[in-house]
Amino acid sequence: MTPDYPVRTARLVLRPFTAADEAALHSWESRPDVVRYLYGEARTPDESKVNLARKMSVPWPEKEGQDLCLVIERDGVAVGEAVLKYLSEEHRQGEIGYIVHPDHHGHGYATEAAAAMLELGFGLLKLHRIVASCDARNDASWGVMERLGMRREAHFKHSELFKGEWGEEFVYAILEDEWRTSPLAANGIRV
């Protein structure tokens, strides 16, 4: 079962990437402040074009190892992206992630889009457990996870050299039954 795109929330539209999204994708992928806490560096236009093709290649994750990447739109403007990774079919595990362009920070778009991705993961992909992780210094990102009702399960201190310094990572998770009792579950989300 796949979603009936676009996925709608109270204020947002989540839809698959298209070739027309190249400039929007590059607008956040090219920013050092956006990739500060992500693997990799700011992308060139050519690198964003290659990444766009990858994002467009999976309209719905049908097997483990596939990632669903959706554009987050507000009033017809692409403000970011949300991802749902299918980690394990056997164990029914997934992972969510999100990026919102800094020009659109502070409006709750990441929380709203991430809630939609949880709904897709639990509702349509039939996952049992979904995780999310971030750099421990990324207060905004782990704040989203906590607003979603996710539980911090790990704090990895100095777990890897990351961009020239020791990195720390928070790992959060939520189970399907926990999500179903969350105030944000299916809050105006149509999948």
Score class of each variant (00 low, 15 high):
136 A>V: 03
150 M>C: 09
147 R>A: 15
163 K>T: 07
142 W>N: 02
152 R>W: 00
141 S>K: 02
130 I>L: 07
156 F>P: 01
133 S>M: 10
162 F>M: 03
136 A>Y: 06
160 E>L: 13
138 N>Q: 06
142 W>R: 07
136 A>D: 15
134 C>K: 10
129 R>H: 14
153 E>N: 05
158 H>T: 03
146 E>C: 09
153 E>I: 00
144 V>Q: 07
164 G>I: 08
143 G>C: 07
151 R>M: 04
139 D>S: 11
134 C>H: 10
144 V>M: 06
160 E>D: 09
146 E>P: 10
150 M>K: 07
164 G>K: 07
140 A>C: 01
162 F>P: 03
145 M>Q: 13
152 R>V: 02
160 E>V: 08
152 R>K: 14
163 K>C: 04
152 R>Q: 13
154 A>T: 01
131 V>I: 15
138 N>F: 03
132 A>E: 06
161 L>N: 10
151 R>Q: 12
143 G>I: 05
138 N>V: 05
135 D>Q: 11
140 A>Q: 07
141 S>W: 00
142 W>L: 02
146 E>R: 15
130 I>C: 09
152 R>F: 00
165 E>C: 08
135 D>C: 09
141 S>V: 02
153 E>M: 03
132 A>P: 07
164 G>V: 07
138 N>K: 03
162 F>E: 01
146 E>W: 03
159 S>P: 01
159 S>L: 07
133 S>V: 04
130 I>A: 07
131 V>L: 13
147 R>K: 11
137 R>G: 15
150 M>F: 04
133 S>H: 12
131 V>K: 14
142 W>Q: 04
132 A>M: 06
160 E>R: 13
159 S>Y: 08
156 F>A: 04
163 K>P: 05
154 A>W: 00
154 A>Y: 00
149 G>Y: 12
139 D>K: 11
142 W>T: 01
132 A>C: 13
140 A>D: 11
143 G>Q: 08
129 R>G: 04
139 D>N: 07
144 V>D: 09
135 D>P: 07
149 G>W: 13
139 D>P: 00
143 G>M: 06
132 A>H: 05
143 G>L: 06
147 R>V: 05
129 R>K: 15
131 V>H: 10
155 H>V: 01
128 H>A: 12
150 M>R: 08
129 R>F: 10
128 H>L: 13
158 H>W: 00
138 N>W: 01
158 H>V: 02
159 S>H: 11
156 F>T: 02
154 A>N: 02
140 A>H: 00
164 G>M: 09
162 F>R: 06
165 E>Y: 05
162 F>K: 05
162 F>N: 04
140 A>M: 02
152 R>S: 10
134 C>D: 09
145 M>N: 06
152 R>P: 07
162 F>G: 06
138 N>M: 04
137 R>Y: 03
139 D>E: 14
134 C>L: 08
158 H>D: 13
